[in-house]
Design a protein around this nucleic acid. Sequence first.
DNA 1: TTCGATGCAAAAGGTTTGCATGGGT
DNA 2: ACCCATGCAAACCTTTTGCATCGAA
Lengths: 153, 153
Amino acid sequence: MLPVTTQQKVIRLLGQNGHRLTSQKQTVLKILFEHDRSHLTVEEIYGYAKEESSRVSIATIYKTISFLEQENVLHKIRIDNKRNCYELIHPNEPEGHPHCICTKCCKTIGIVDESVIRMLSVCEQAIKVHYHFQINLQDILYYGLCEECRKKS
Amino acid sequence: MLPVTTQQKVIRLLGQNGHRLTSQKQTVLKILFEHDRSHLTVEEIYGYAKEESSRVSIATIYKTISFLEQENVLHKIRIDNKRNCYELIHPNEPEGHPHCICTKCCKTIGIVDESVIRMLSVCEQAIKVHYHFQINLQDILYYGLCEECRKKS
DNA sequence: TTCGATGCAAAAGGTTTGCATGGGT
DNA sequence: ACCCATGCAAACCTTTTGCATCGAA
């Protein structure tokens, strides 16, 4: 759960710089807060938004999501290459952290464990050295079986 | 460059199991062999194929690519989330190795260096331990600047 | 009252599909 | 001759866009 103070900060942010805090934006934010740590598709957000209030269009959902991405509230992850997924950014966690995706139940798990993150940054360093490539952004997905699904099978 | 013996093995493979080695399939394969180590989009393959012979349709390119994917000749990588890219699988190299993508010139570099690969598998191990997640497949992209583009800027 | 945000519907762009025809084997 | 593969065009699906209208500040 994103801390309430952070939530409020985000909400305030959206009404600034000539932007307007509309009910649609608030609805989308509410949904994102309620589904923190999940990885929602646009269609899912739209579905939840219609439950909240019928006055939403899919175009607005897309526009709002782009806006929230620009404002560093939301982060796009490409879990499959058909549709995009989004997750809330947690200010104190490494941005763009790796994800595990269960190929059976489709659950996604964000990898934020410090020791793992540290190891990955060692790999990054090695790539910089070996390939003379300056890494600015990483995008790491692991596919496999989560604990529950592995136990079942 | 994929070894010629491997190329021939692939070509032979395509005429087996009730499949037919058509000129279109051969054209696509020729293009893939010639652009080994690159990461071609479907549109690019289609473009090259039309140069080779005018008798190709985009639908056939898609169908051929799916077929080659199933046959473990080709591997899909999602470099951007608009269109898919493909690269030849090299039997003796780790499948699904990481890629560096230059955000300036769009060049992609496959990471096959053994020491880096070894480090990454240590990370995998750590994830298995910390998250009780069984990793079957990895999909790792690094975005940044390649050597040439970094020198230029 | 102003002007950014919304809703609608159409467009865009990549990919898939159905079906008659072509061409390997 | 058989029947898989191809080409065409239409369908699909997600995402984007243009524009008139709405509504937050």
